[in-house]
Amino acid sequence: MHSFGYRANALLTFAVTLLALICAMSSLSDNLNSPSPSSHVKVLNINWFQKSTQGNDEVSMTMNISANLQSLFTWNTKQVFVFLAAEYETPQNSLNQVSLWDGIIPSKEHAKFWIHTTNKYRFTDQGSNLQGKEFNLTLHWHVMPKTGKMFADKIVMSGFSLPVEYR
């Protein structure tokens, strides 16, 4: 009953149980945080707007993205993945989401940012429906924990529209 093996086994079991408990508790403690992030996006210029050879509309635009996501960070936050997506409806599709820009925020100090950028990923439609199209720009974020459950939320900014003519 009191051999070395038994004691080692008991100690290991206890240590692993304790570690699992601490992980679970730190993951649960994320629920206590009620963040209040803010963001603002401005489309500065439509650089070009055309129909590709495959028949899909494609846009390139320059944007100004500013956001304050500092309140998302807790002690169990490894990083925050943030991205901006254009969202719109077309006759064929009830929802189109196109990611335009993304970035990783490694710590709270860097969570208040401002960036001037063109779209990092291609803003391509599935078809040719973008002329004069009104769309939302949504800032999404995914909170990556050090351990446990991942969180996600978004801010929807509406009232953007594309030009009627290709350019």
Binding site: I104, H116, T117, K120, Y121
Partner: peptide, 25 residues
């Protein structure tokens, strides 16, 4: 798309991010 790549550090790093578009899906 693949890796999450670019880690953002402060707003001073924006020149690095700027023009970093059309990454591969």
């Amino acid at each position: 798309k693949g890796p999450d790549y670019i880690v953002m550090r402060t707003s001073r790093d924006t020149p690095n991010l700027h023009g970093d578009h059309n990454l591969h899906d």
